[in-house]
Design a protein around this nucleic acid. Structure first.
Lengths: 220, 220
DNA sequence: TCCATTCGAGAACAGTGTTCGCGAACGACG
DNA sequence: CGTCGTTCGCGAACACTGTTCTCGAATGGA
């Protein structure tokens, strides 16, 4: 289909009524991903967790990618957006904090956020909220949109690193780094000392957003 | 294997010599990805482009993921790193510029950079260069490492957007955005006007890096 | 000339996303 | 109640996928 997943035509009271709903399918896929990771979310496995066949899912979802988009947007329903007000940076940091919590609870989300940018209903709500937070700010609309994208991207990338450090994924790159140090020829890397760990999330995000938006010498 | 791809044991002059090399396999995979995208890089298709069977590739590469890591690092060989010197921000911006060019030439790269962080030999060289550029800078080692990660992540994310805008991928989210605007209830989004396009790459990157590193009130 | 060692690669396994087609189930209408 | 148009469920099939097993072939050093 050419049309986005979220506004496909609804039924017209005629014909056999469906036994399940898009929301149920999405919920099953999210539960499966939470339990066994994104790779386990195959049409057959999702269908099996609903006691049905893989082909049936295509009545609710037009492709696996659609299902992934639905999953991401559904999790974005978990944002608890406060009324905008107060300093804009604090408002954006709150969004980042909540995003990080959501992603830590659904470790498959960062990859989805980083590689596709589908903006379903809840994503649009989030964007609306960010724009509201930035309401009095003098920056270009384009720059505000950019700030929204940077906020999401950096949060996802940060959480991906956090999760990679928790599992042993960090070991693999660390192993080669150690080799590169031992081989000499990389003095600055060697001078770093023993694996300095990246800093706090909020501090980093705050600096980045401030650099992007808090420029006192705005273009006239 | 537990050990990274880049330092697996070399041959010992005994037995039948291999007919191909890791570099050849990597080059074939890169050529295929350039031509038909990352999804086309299957073991069978890469093998076919080398006139051999899929199983043979496992003599050079221990998994498809390994091959992807090799591809990413091989492209990173294309950086032309100048001697460090001059203002650090200009040095980092030059790295970003070159990274963007590399990624625009290999549209499958951003996804790889965003979702995995394997740091092969050329990635390590790049890190060494960035640390050299940042040599006199007073920031923590951890923050310098973070700046390196942010530089790569933001470049990849930016190029991914650029590529998505060039193809019709942008249409899909734009379509739903338009619907959200028409439905009311999102006044700030509606106030943005007709699809403001994100700003220039170097300007954005410059602001972000400056915010991250150029803080005059460093912690004592 | 052996022969340990390595390489090449066909065959097979256990999956994958997606499409087709048909029987079954339903709401509205007569 | 019976019919009818429409929709749904889903088994079967297709064209792939990554990976492993296996075994014959090739090789260079002794």
């Amino acid at each position: 289909m050419d049309v986005p997943v979220w506004l496909r035509s609804r039924r017209a009271g005629v014909g056999r009524p469906p036994e399940r709903s898009v929301a149920e399918v999405t919920a099953a896929a999210i539960a499966l991903a939470d339990r066994e990771g994104l790779a386990a979310v195959s049409m057959r496995r999702v269908a099996a967790s609903l006691d049905t066949g893989a082909a049936s899912l295509y009545r609710y979802v037009s492709s696996r990618d659609d299902l992934l988009d639905l999953m991401a947007d559904e999790v974005a329903a978990g944002y608890d957006l406060p009324a905008p007000g107060g300093p804009w940076l604090a408002g954006l940091l709150e969004v980042g904090r909540q995003g990080r919590t959501l992603m830590l609870g659904h470790p498959w989300l960062p990859e989805l956020v980083l590689t596709r940018a589908p903006l379903g209903p809840h994503g649009v709500d989030l964007l609306e909220h960010v724009l509201a937070v930035l309401d009095g700010h003098p920056a270009d609309p384009a720059r505000k949109l950019e700030a929204f994208a940077v906020l999401n991207t950096m949060t996802a990338a940060f959480v991906l690193n956090e999760l990679g450090a928790a599992s042993g994924t960090r070991m693999r790159q660390g192993a080669y780094l150690a080799h590169a140090i031992a081989a000499g020829a990389h003095p600055h890397i060697a001078a770093l000392g023993p694996s300095p760990v990246p800093g706090r999330f909020e501090d980093t995000l705050s600096r980045i957003l401030a650099g992007l938006l808090d420029d006192q010498k705005e273009k006239p």
